[in-house]
Design a binder for these strands. Structure first.
Lengths: 234, 234
DNA sequence: CCTTCCCGTATGGAATCCGTAAGGATGACA
DNA sequence: TGTCATCCTTACGGATTCCATACGGGAAGG
């Protein structure tokens, strides 16, 4: 989630950058109105924190300029407490208005409230290979090999293995990585668990489990999920 | 544009009704939390103005109850000025928070800002699976298994569980998600509540509770509401 | 051809997780 | 004060999943 903060106070900017970064936001900053508009165009933030009263362009005009092409939520942070300023900013297209000084907890809660309504356009976590489609977020596997698409059930451990392979699709995943990720650091000694779960995964996912085309073994090293060409192109 | 105002102060209620009616809003009022929930269900307002600290139910719980099935913007108007109250209300699902006393012009501007983002038509809150039809907004379950359609009664906790499953229909819902969503804080330690309520829900909703077709268990992970194919197509 | 290593698969028991029933505690309401 | 619905706790049989072991096959190298 990318957030643009525009304020002419470098100190406040720095404090907000630290706070919001710690909360997992991708922070972009600007020091004046012109810079805010430019940054909004270049960076396409998901949320905007705008200070009115920045030097140069009037804050209201900044809102207008951005609202012309973006629907991202705009939260105005301003020292002006008058009702007239608030009404003007909100009617110009701002979604919320907080007066300085403000409490950080409240600001964060208001940002959460604004971003809640924005559909998350994050990376699509659905991957297909062979006759099978995997949706990591919904935790579903659908097999379209027969005439009717069928749900495939995986056990928790099978999911853990498959998820790690999908997140590193195309790349080699070492046995060590898989073992430590699933059984913890102390269980790095393979006694054959992995072969077992890979076998079960192939039985459930591969068109021909005897000769795997997607869940490949790299002898002596680990495993690799090989996607089809059109999948890799994404 | 229909707006629901819930406040225990009749005088404030009257003043707001006059003001908002003059602006062209269709005004509905309620004097306590229970009345607010009932009015929201019956009248389907486009916006809600909620006072915290009404007698009876806690304001936060009112927000939760309405957010279960409605996406209408909620603006909290409260005398409590603490950051904790604001954060709690906003995270519960409120979209804005104004402290009393407030300026009418600002309130109107905030209402305009909220209503500007209302989508044309919300998500259909009625879902069918098996022999039952669930209407989240009306809080009704109708069973059409027999010759005559029958009303099914669910307890509040059963509703909360079913609600979360319906809103994530087709997707896996973690035990942890269910527990934290229903029992609030870090009450994530399962001693068996969920199994109990799922059992009761199946008894009331499944055609054959012994072999569930819709309220599925994913052993070791959580639960999933599996809809029929034609329902999923929507 | 044989040895060695690594991998895939089958199988059974152990541990964990799940469904359901029964009973007590709590609170709303008359 | 008593009734009723709901919530919570406990307990136990059954199902699922995990773990450990064993055995067979294939590739590499001598």
């Amino acid at each position: 989630m990318k957030i643009l903060i525009a304020d002419d106070d470098p100190q406040l900017l720095r404090a907000l950058r630290i706070t919001l970064s710690a909360k997992g936001y991708d922070v972009v900053t600007a020091l004046d109105g012109r810079g805010a508009i430019a940054a909004a165009i270049e960076q396409r933030p998901d949320v905007l924190l705008l200070d009115l009263g920045m030097p140069g362009i009037d804050g209201i005009q900044v809102i207008h300029a951005i609202r012309g092409w973006s629907d991202a939520p705009i939260l105005v942070v301003s020292g002006r407490t008058g009702a007239g300023d608030k009404v003007e900013a909100l009617d110009a297209g701002a979604d919320d208005y907080v007066t300085k000084p403000f409490l950080v907890d409240e600001l964060l809660a208001r940002i959460r409230a604004l971003t809640r309504r924005i559909p998350e356009h994050g990376v699509n976590p659905v991957v297909s290979f062979g006759t099978v489609t995997v949706d990591l977020s919904a935790r579903t596997v659908i097999d379209t090999s027969g005439s009717t698409s069928q749900q495939v059930r995986l056990t928790p451990t099978e999911w853990q293995v498959l998820e790690l392979l999908i997140r590193n699709a195309g790349r080699l995943v070492t046995r060590q990585t898989l073992l430590t990720h699933i059984w913890g650091t102390e269980h790095a000694r393979d006694t054959g668990y992995l072969r077992l779960y890979l076998s079960q995964l192939r039985k459930k996912l591969e068109p021909d489990p005897a000769s795997p085309r997607y869940l490949l073994t790299e002898s002596g090293m680990g495993y690799r999920l090989q996607l089809d060409a059109e999948e890799r192109a994404r």
